[in-house]
């Protein structure tokens, strides 16, 4: 039928917007995994961020405070995971999954207690910010330069986080802790401190990603709205091989594939929706197969560290 300009513009805009929750979560996960912590609690952190942002935003009627609330909750959850896997040296997979199950259920429970069967909307959430001049560029102007402010911040964060991880001594220490923590420790690096720092950062970014979903893209919270985006973020990190720039590209790829699922149906392709809907996952699986050979995990990923052992 029509792959017309208006649809192209919408696809471009929704690619960017749709990839943001995953990108934020994946950027945090990149740091945590680079330091040797596999954070499977990422999905739960996103749910908690989505709920906290909505609750705070609604109570204060100030959307930015919602994002702040999400970041604080994320830091707290990151700290808790850190204490369990760094302090108590518990199994990272068990702790992460436990965190996801607990936070998801707890947020649903709180939602039920606070709102009952009401689903209020946070009016004013999801508003976009138009960048003068650039937003007037034909075709790409609106989708790229009329986005939520957090989209611009996240895009700016990508090179900053890349620079920090690969061009600074802090980044070198983080990677060293993820590869050979004992050697890093011997050379004076605070292994515990670095790991706490990265898991808290992962919590902040994952929760902010959840918040973007609830009050950046949408304007409400509903249980289960994260829909596995946290787990996709983990795949994207592997896809991007712990490099924030590549993680960004991986998130965009998945976001684009997701956008195509609706665009291709609307465009009128005579293909079964069932096939179209499998595309994002096919893309991810194919990409993983292609790059899997050259992927090597951080050597100390999931390995608890104790000085002297």
């Amino acid at each position: 039928m029509l792959f017309e300009e208006a649809l192209f513009v919408t696809v471009l805009a929704s690619t960017l917007r749709g990839s943001m929750p995953m990108l934020l979560a994946a950027l945090g996960e990149t740091y945590a995994e680079s330091a040797g912590i596999l954070n499977l609690g990422i999905e739960g952190m996103m749910v908690a961020g989505a709920f906290a942002s909505f609750l705070v935003g609604l109570q204060t009627n100030m959307v930015p405070l919602g994002f702040l609330g999400a970041a604080i909750i994320g830091a707290v959850l990151g700290g808790i995971i850190g204490f369990l896997v760094i302090g108590l040296r518990l199994n990272q997979i068990v702790v992460g999954l436990g965190m996801t199950v607990f936070t998801s259920a707890f947020c649903n429970l709180l939602h039920r207690i606070i709102f009952g069967s009401q689903f209020p909307m946070l009016w004013g959430a999801g508003m976009t910010t138009e960048i003068p001049v650039l937003s007037k560029i034909p075709i790409i102007g609106q989708p790229l330069f009329n986005q939520h402010w957090l989209v611009y911040v996240t895009l700016a964060l990508v090179p900053v986080l890349y620079f920090l991880l690969y061009r600074t001594s802090l980044g070198l220490r983080i990677r060293a802790v993820g590869e050979t923590p004992w050697a890093a420790d011997a050379s004076g690096v605070n292994v515990y401190g670095i790991r706490y720092l990265t898991i808290i950062l992962a919590g902040v970014l994952a929760s902010t990603g959840g918040a973007f979903l609830a009050i950046g893209d949408l304007a409400f919270f509903i249980p289960d709205m994260v829909k596995g985006r946290g787990y996709i973020a983990i795949v994207v990190v592997m896809l991007g091989r712990w490099n924030p720039i590549k993680v960004f590209l991986g998130s965009l790829l998945f976001g684009f594939a997701l956008s195509l699922t609706s665009a291709l149906q609307v465009a009128g392709l005579k293909v079964s929706p069932d096939f179209i809907l499998t595309m994002p996952y096919l893309v991810v699986i194919l990409t993983l197969i292609i790059i899997a050979k050259s992927t090597s995990l951080p050597a100390a990923l999931c390995v608890p560290y104790k000085r002297g052992e």
Binding site: T10, D217, I222, M225, K227, L258, S262, A263, Q265, V266
Partner: peptide, 10 residues
């Protein structure tokens, strides 16, 4: 919900 919004916008 995000998927619902995306499909409707398209």
């Amino acid at each position: 919900a995000a998927g619902g919004k995306r499909n409707t916008e398209d």
